[in-house]
């Protein structure tokens, strides 16, 4: 039972929002010691685990080309493109992407999307542009923008998870057949497992698609509430935001007054550092 204390460390660490690197490091060492591994074995576990999991970090190789395209206006062009499609709201757009992601994943094309390949350069800016049009062309207040971006990532992940298992040769299907056939001396066909994944895939599209359609209403309400609290977006609230930005970053001072938000975000430091 005592090895479960490592799990407790992780839960407490994440719940109290400690730095995740430290949480994982401490939990790993603690679990190793409680599981009666020697310090050398723990070091080996860290080393072997790092070496065998490098493939999850390989997306870093896409960053130079994404960065090059972004400094040449990729996100702005994504916005322009979506701006031309009048009836496309954030929710409807993300629902279309969800369907596309599920279908392509079901045919074995999992690598067609992903946070670095599609969500950051194209999907999130397009979803934001659709929301901005609903906001009268004005930039989104921060909580709303965060919600739109979070849902862009969510649509990608949900689409992948509940599409990929309809494909025969995916890791999870092969794990099931490998484990069951060798452990219990029986024979499961990958095809029948893939077919059993279809009902869940359909449910997932209905559930998440419906939630995305409802997102439009939620965003509209939040925008209205923000307007009510902060004026029309051209008045005091705007000036306050501009002032805040200048205090955050030197190069913001050289920016023009047009408020498109994104550049300031980058400078204000969000991810790791901002979360502590």
């Amino acid at each position: 039972m005592v090895v479960l204390l490592g799990v407790v460390v992780v839960v407490l660490g994440f719940a109290t929002r400690r730095n995740p690197l430290l949480v994982v490091g401490v939990a790993g060492i603690a679990t190793g010691l409680l599981g009666e591994l020697s310090p050398a074995e723990i070091l080996r576990a860290f080393g072997d685990g790092f070496a065998s999991s490098r493939s999850v970090t390989i997306f870093a190789i896409t960053l130079p080309v994404i960065g090059l395209l972004e400094r040449n206006g990729l996100q702005q062009q994504a916005r322009t493109l979506i701006g031309k499609l009048g009836g496309l709201t954030t929710g409807r757009f993300l629902m279309l992407y969800l369907a596309l992601r599920q279908l392509t994943a079901a045919f074995g094309l999992q690598s067609i999307g992903g946070p670095a390949q599609s969500v950051r350069p194209m999907i999130a800016p397009m979803a934001e542009a659709a929301a901005e049009r609903r906001n009268g062309g004005r930039p989104l207040p921060e909580p709303v923008r965060e919600k739109v971006r979070s849902h862009s990532s969510g649509a990608d992940t949900v689409g992948l998870f509940f599409g990929e298992d309809c494909f025969l040769a995916i890791g999870s299907i092969l794990l099931i057949t490998g484990f069951v056939n060798s452990t219990y001396d029986t024979h499961l066909e990958p095809l029948s497992l893939a077919l059993w994944a279809v009902p869940t895939a359909v449910c997932a599209f209905l559930v998440h698609g419906a939630r995305l359609l409802r997102l439009d209403g939620t965003l509209e309400r939040e925008l209205a509430a923000y307007e009510a609290a902060h004026g029309t977006g051209n008045g005091a609230g705007h000036a306050a935001r501009d002032a805040a930005r200048i205090s955050l970053t030197k190069d913001a001072a050289t920016r023009t007054g047009t408020d498109t938000g994104r550049g300031a975000d980058r400078a204000s430091g969000t991810t790791g550092e901002g979360a502590e």
Binding site: V3, L4, G6, V7, V10, P20, L21, V24, G25, A27, G28, T31, G32, L34, G35, E36, L37, I42, A45, F46, D48, G49, F50, S52, S53, R54, V56, T57, A60, T271, G272, E273
Partner: peptide, 23 residues
């Protein structure tokens, strides 16, 4: 992105340690 980039690999490590320790 910062150190968040390292996190997926570390969590894979933690999963392996959980397994070895008998969680």
């Amino acid at each position: 992105m910062g150190w968040a980039l390292l996190l997926p690999q570390l969590l894979a490590v933690l999963g392996a340690i959980f397994q070895t320790a008998g969680v």
